[in-house]
Design a protein around this nucleic acid. Sequence first.
RNA 1: GGGCGCGUAGCUCAGCGGUAGAGCACUGCCUUCACACGGCAGGGGUCACAGGUUCAAACCCUGUCGCGCCCACCA
Length: 729
Amino acid sequence: MSLIDKNFAPGDFEERWYAHWEASGAFRPDRPEAKPYTIIIPPPNVTGSLHIGHALDNTLQDVLIRWHRLNGRDARWVVGTDHAGIATQMVVERQLMESQQPGRTAMGRAAFVAKVWEWKAESGDTITRQLRRLGASCDWANERFTMDEGFNTAVTRVFVTLFNEGLLYRDKRLVNWDPKLKTAISDLEVESREVAGSFTHIRYPLADGVTLADGRDHIIVATTRPETMLGDTAVAVNARDTRYQSVIGKFVKLPITGRLIPIIADDHADPELGSGAVKITPAHDFNDFEVGKRHGMTPINIFDADARIIAAEGIPAGYVGLDRFVARKQVIADLEALALIELIETKTIQMPYGDRSGVVVEPWLTDQWYVNAAELAQPALAAVKSGETQFVPKSWEKTYFNWMENIQPWCVSRQLWWGHRIPAWYGPDGQFFVAENEAKAQALAGDMLLTRDADVLDTWFSSALWPFATLGWPENTAELARHYPGDVLVTGFDIIFFWVARMMMQGMHFMGEVPPFETVYCHGLVRDAKGAKMSKSKGNTIDPLLLIDKYGADALRFTLTAMESQGRDIKLDEKRVEGYRNFATKLWNAARFCQSNGISGSTSVAPPPANNAVNRWIIGEVAATARALETAIATFRFDAYADAIYSFAWNRFCDWYLELTKPLLSEAADPVVAAETRAVSGWALDQILVMLHPVMPFLTEELWHKLGTRSRDLLVSAWVAADLPVDAA
RNA sequence: GGGCGCGUAGCUCAGCGGUAGAGCACUGCCUUCACACGGCAGGGGUCACAGGUUCAAACCCUGUCGCGCCCACCA
């Protein structure tokens, strides 16, 4: 208990309180008799730094955790970081380049991975330090990392188990290949962009003097990627298409290569589209791959990992080694010279781009590991259908259903170095053995000389295990029993497929059909004041740390809470932060006023006895506010929470109550009424601190201690304000 | 081509069946012994448009227009 300074300066006490809380163990769950309340943090990238989206996500989680902690629950916020395979690998590669050190391939795998660990150690606590500045009351004592020892065990166990159950398998099929990063990526990591392109109509000469019904000696096919014709294995037409019925089973002579390829009948060819005839390139197009399979064709691969032409069947030597885009020009030039170009249309086309590399992704034929997602999706789907897990807002359930019901095999192998190495070993003739370690694989393989799979797992494969691997799984720990499933997951809607769906699948499969959380709260994106998506390249990013420096963490937290409305996107305007900093100042001054009038903190949750009408009124208002907050939390209406406490504290408590009671505290006033008013004021102010604490933890903790001699910190006090009598007056 | 969401005061948004609300901005007054990062008073909206349901609609239904996002193999 000490005098409240005239100036409100959050920088003077925020870091001090955080250090005190953490050191005192306040973030640890320590109420074994109470019902647990568990949130699992979406693990930020270990080498990342706090952006405004993290600030929102973690503020909301902290509001929930702190509210439930204040309400007596045994709250635990499980925390940790993600190794973020591809993202981190790219960061380190870029750093090597910028510092002119040898590149990844030059230094070799072991040295590179060591370099990443070095970088992780160096920068790895940046993000967690920043979360502390935000005030996130995470259980740091049990901080996890997706590549720590226990996690590695969990990942391996899951891989081996799924393999043994037949739910994970190796397959040769087309993947989305990123020729820049030189790895397979999943469907979700491909974004379709509209670009200016062209549509080339090519004449494929009919072989053996055959002609079409209209007398033409060629079939016209169209493509946006002319170079792929080097790998064509057929031309497909529809069996119902009268224009082509007579030539089904005949051949065309594939230009440039001179190969004869058959004209086949397949429903993939739509008579309504283009010429009705379509070139089939099984090794470089997802549809064509299926067509090829139906007709027993062997795909002809024409690219290497860099998407350069290789010496495949019939490809002229001059093409070998050409980049795909150079090859495209060459194909067009050669076809033009042969007078086989019917037409080149300029038009906007859809092209697949790697979301990380920004280059055009190629469908490429490789051996990869796949998870049978369609199978794992069934229980995960059922859990949401039955309401065991609920999305808030509910409309996201439809999105989830739609994706899960049409889910494709999940390619989980990546040709990267940073990540969980795939636990599979190969014998000399391509036999493979999946086991938890090399010794077990060797036991399966007998005398064979084994080499380990060079690939690593998709980052999301490990983060899918986050809700249970962080609690000690596969060991049967007490923590697991107590904190799984979590109460709520708070995350952005943009990773529902990447992460939420995968956690649902793995959680259901490995945790006895129990989904990992009861509620999935999906918040929106934080945009700039004009509504534009923030990006470094646009230069419109808002750095949450700068806002914290300028206005205090509490003001930023209040802003994000007040603007979070049912998952809608947030247009963040700095003026809003300034406004809520003003609110903090207002409260600070109100507390200072109270203190200067001999008002101090209360000793109990229950309101003091009151006879005076104004005092009775404010007691009732506190109760009504507490109930409004309870509803807001139960329905995840963060905006309603902020609004209720704001209007109560400012409009009713400051503007009316403090003004109306000023005369009651004057020297001329009745001492009995004055004493009652001091007691009620102190109690009401305490209640404001309690109710506001989840959103503004620093300011409220500071005032809590300034206003009274307290046996405990505010954040760990269990105050069930909503139980107050509603009609105290 | 499917799916979702949004169009309410100058701006950002609540309200989702019972005579229009908040914050910011704006106007006027006030440096009154908590606070000018403040106080008091005030101006400002045919709730996108058109139909319908209802005693009653910003709120429910149908359609139209505009904006945004997600998913999808028109080669």
